[in-house]
Amino acid sequence: MSILSGILVLAGLALLFGLILGFAAIRFKVESDPLVDQIDEILPQTQCGQCGYPGCRPYAEAIANGDDINKCPPGGEATIQKLSDLTGREAKPLDAAHGVEDVKKVAYIREDECIGCTKCIQACPVDAIMGANRQMHTVIADECTGCDLCVEPCPVDCIDMLPVTTKPERWRWQLDSIPVTVVDATQALPEQKAEPKEEHSGSQV
């Protein structure tokens, strides 16, 4: 009898708490972005297709469905790390089969060689190339993601991928990258006079 009552009490409690939890799960549900959106948010949106998918969103969907997170060369290690944090999967090194991490580049059309075939315009995933049939084309540098997709289709090979030049205001304080200039002491100051300078008394202060 006592066993029965114990079981009943426990079962009752289990039911009660189950109901409370169930209610709480519905009542206090936290709406979160679907996983695909969150992954897409992290990807660099170059739409280059190096991952093997036609754009970042398809790759985001693939990752959500279990594909590897190390197929995005433009994002590089930083993106892999973020994806690893989000998905809880191991951060593997970048898959070399899909390319290597490179400096950021931007497409540049040598305009006098362009024949106006519009093939690059059709290839550009973000519509960053302006031009029309038989008209010279040009790249909107600010919108170019550096995806490389326009280089291949160009029949006259007039598109270069140039590294993005750093501006002082976007410099990242890499003091190590400033070259050490070794100069001849006499040449450092071309106008310096040879005569010995008189010692200044203030230098003792």
Partner: peptide, 10 residues
Amino acid sequence: KAEIARQRFE
């Protein structure tokens, strides 16, 4: 930039 690229791509 990524956000703009996404919008343009979409």
